[in-house]
């Protein structure tokens, strides 16, 4: 088994390239998924606000903050 990991003495180079590839591809995927989740939440919030506001637009003077 340790023979497999040492890869004929080049283990560090080989595992480093596979490891860096795996990490960067996974990080890109996760940041994309998180961004997508955040954008969905934000969009949902905006759309709920939009829905709740629509009837009030008839009397905009009522809405002073």
């Amino acid at each position: 088994m340790s023979e497999f990991f040492s890869m004929g003495g080049y283990g560090s180079y080989i595992w480093a390239s596979y490891g860096i590839a795996a990490i960067s591809l996974i990080v890109l995927l996760i940041t994309t998924l998180r961004g997508l989740g955040q954008s969905r939440t934000e969009l949902d919030q905006l759309e709920t606000v939009l829905k709740s506001r629509r009837p009030r637009r008839v009397r905009p003077k009522d809405q002073t903050s």
Binding site: G35, S39, E42, L43, L46, R57
Partner: peptide, 19 residues
């Protein structure tokens, strides 16, 4: 993600929230 962001931007700029 990009489509969502554009929709968010369009909603924010549409003026609906400026009432």
């Amino acid at each position: 993600l990009e489509l969502n962001q554009r929709r968010i931007r369009a909603l924010q700029l549409s003026g609906v929230f400026d009432d």
